[in-house]
Amino acid sequence: MHVKDAPDGYGIVSRLFHWLMAIAIFGLFGLGWWMVELDYYSPYYVSAPNLHRSVGILLFIALLARIFWRCLNIKPDDADLTAMERMASRFVHIGFYPLLIALSISGYLISTPGGRAIDVFGLFSVPSIVQQKGLEDSAGWVHWALAYGVIALAVVHTAGALKHHFIDKGSSLMRMWSGPQRPN
């Protein structure tokens, strides 16, 4: 099994990061979209935001670890892409990182500017750093807009991957799904 990335595919660590974070990102989007409309007397009024905050913090930690891991690895070969496709794919890939970092920070700033910490599944808590009255309002708008931005980018990314797999008969999807084919 390939742990690190190889020229013909991603190693197990990168693949786990990719698919688990994809699930978490879509899950958090759906959860967030649903939970803000909950009635005060819904049984999930307290637990849904708690879950959203906890998973969000873990996602942010995973994101930092993923960026670090990416720096340690070579980039799989993308010579089969046209110059245009390569530029678009790099733009989308690189675009996720600042968007997700800003999304995480804005979410953190909805919960913490009054001085309260974010409790993560009762395991640990992330303290408030910035305290400013009313910051939660602007952070809320930014978080909302960035969430849609990330999902839009994910849709573009998915469409590109599917087009490359089914129409261009490229190998990029399999590189991320089953990893490098050459033995170690």
Partner: peptide
């Protein structure tokens, strides 16, 4: 101000 940023929002 109710001493809870999310509630105040």
């Amino acid at each position: 101000n109710t001493n809870h940023a999310e509630r105040d929002k």
